[in-house]
């Protein structure tokens, strides 16, 4: 005689691990709502940048200030990190915690390189006297790009805590959900950066 266990209520085995538990899947929907609010934060900052871009006062404008080299390198780093975190989630769907760990660490290394380059870029502008109280343009620039950089920096710290949890608990509906929301966050930051690269750096060079 076999004893068949009734399926846990709210449990769907046909779904990926992060969505299999009802409670955890609600948190993914909640995280989408957070991203919606973040879209609006960045929209406000882009609006401010668009309005203040011509107001350079006595400071440099985008044409004199920006260099393509670091901006393009930062873009390629962030695009690649978006790809690696995508592969981490692919590995998670395959149930391979080692793969998740390795690809997430690669993502963090790329993210850290991005933040390092951005700090270096800001410091090089400040060395020229182009600090954020120089002009309305520079205020808007530093707040927009800096808010994005702060998001990336926070994302790195967050992912480190997730990797510790993954190492201790393995892939469970809870750790899978947390890694999944981190991947949503990271891809979202890549989308924001694509618009920063286009609107701030590329359009800054179009007279």
């Amino acid at each position: 005689m076999s004893l068949e266990l009734a399926p846990e209520p709210g449990r769907r085995e046909d779904l990926p691990l992060e969505l299999s538990d009802e409670q955890e899947s609600v948190k993914i929907t909640g995280f989408w709502m957070f991203l919606v609010t973040d879209v609006l934060i960045f929209a406000s900052l882009f609006s401010a940048y668009a309005v203040y871009r011509p107001r350079v006062a006595t400071g440099p404008g985008p044409l004199e200030l920006f260099h393509f080299g670091p901006a393009l390198l930062e873009t390629l780093l962030l695009l690649t990190s978006s790809f690696t975190v995508g592969i981490a989630i692919y590995e998670m769907r395959k149930g391979r915690p080692g793969g998740v760990m390795a690809w997430t660490i690669a993502t963090l290394a790329l993210g850290a390189a991005f933040v390092f380059l951005e700090i270096h870029e800001f410091a090089s502008y400040a060395a020229l006297g182009a600090t954020w109280h120089q002009s309305a343009f520079l205020s808007a620039f530093y707040v927009l790009v800096g808010t994005h950089g702060a998001h990336v920096s926070f994302g790195i710290l967050w992912a480190v805590t997730l990797l510790v949890q993954l190492a201790r608990r393995g892939l469970t509906p809870v750790t899978a959900r947390k890694l999944y929301t981190f991947s949503l966050y990271w891809h979202f930051l890549d989308v924001v950066w694509v618009f920063i690269f286009t609107v701030v750096y590329l359009m800054g060079k179009i007279a």
């Binding site: 769907r12 779904l15 969505l19 009802e22 993914i28 790809f83 989630i89 991947s183 891809h187 989308v191």
Partner: peptide, 15 residues
Amino acid sequence: AALQLGVFMHLRESR
């Protein structure tokens, strides 16, 4: 942006 949302963010996936 569409590519990130569609390919990487699994926009269509939900419980």
